[in-house]
Simulated assay, not measured.
Amino acid sequence: MRHKVLIAEDEPAIRELVRLALEEANITEIIEASNGKEALEKAERYQPSLILLDWMMPEMDGLTVCRTLKMQESTRNIPIVMLTAKSEEGDIVLGLEMGAVDYITKPFSRRVLIARVRAHLREQSETTIANEIRRGSLMLNIEQHLCKLNGEPVELTFSEYEILALFARHPGRVYTRNQIIRRVKGDDYPVTERSVDVQIVNLRKKLGEWGSSNIETIRGIGYRLKQENWQ
């Protein structure tokens, strides 16, 4: 499947670096924008598979572009990865809350950029959610709401299962507590920021070494499932 990637970055040198990295990853349909308004217009016109969006740009900043794209029916499902020199926790959380699926802080290496882009494009190519998800020795059957680890059933509450399924579908993606809350509605108890933390603790306990090794805390931001070459 051929992918189109939009690079929205006002610094020509960084834009060139990103373009060369994408070409190295065999992505040949590359669209470029040097300011926020141009990025918004080209995203609407070309409908890229992925947008690499700089945080600080002239005419319209990256956060405004991100928020606008997520409000529009035609562009709301395009994944956005923020490219930013901002590394403060609050800024990262804000970007994720606005709808970005990931962030890469500058300076970044080509290898990291290529790995992140490939992961998000691979995810974007999955047109349907598989009924069964396998992540190493973990297996989730979505239809049966079943969790097995090393072939043995693991009893989870509704909310614990939904959080784990969310992470398992998108390994490597960081979710803030508010994002988790919006996606999880359980009857076991009301989902609050504090209860999300409690459920993560319970998940790690119930999943033993697998849970401790693979469910990561991103300090000040949220949680994610470690990105591995899962077999």
Rank of each mutant, 00 (worst) to 15 (best):
E38Y: 09
I200E: 08
M71A: 15
A33I: 11
D54H: 06
R204K: 15
D197I: 09
I80G: 01
C147L: 08
V174Q: 00
E132G: 09
T105H: 00
W230C: 03
H3K: 14
E228A: 13
R135W: 01
F167G: 06
N35P: 05
H120I: 11
A8S: 05
P79H: 01
K206T: 10
I215V: 06
K148Q: 14
M98W: 06
Y103V: 00
M56V: 12
R224V: 03
V18K: 03
Q231A: 12
E11S: 09
N131A: 10
N214I: 10
T105Q: 03
L96E: 04
E132N: 14
G222I: 04
S159A: 15
K4F: 04
M57K: 05
I221Y: 00
L94E: 13
A8Y: 06
A25Q: 06
L121N: 03
N229W: 01
E44F: 11
K42P: 07
V65Y: 00
P153M: 02
N229V: 08
V117G: 04
M56F: 06
L207M: 06
I80S: 05
G90D: 13
G95T: 04
D102Y: 00
G172Y: 06
L156V: 09
R173W: 12
G99P: 01
R134E: 08
E32L: 10
L22C: 11
T68W: 00
E24K: 12
L121T: 08
S212L: 10
L53I: 02
G136M: 07
L94H: 11
L63I: 14
A85F: 04
E209Y: 02
K226E: 14
A85G: 13
S137I: 08
R15H: 10
N178A: 07
G99F: 03
K226P: 07
M71P: 01
E38R: 10
L138V: 05
H120F: 12
Y223L: 07
S109R: 05
K37W: 10
R177Y: 06
Q124P: 01
Y189T: 09
Y175F: 12
R182H: 14
S109T: 15
G172Q: 02
T127P: 00
G151K: 02
K86H: 09
I92L: 15
P190F: 11
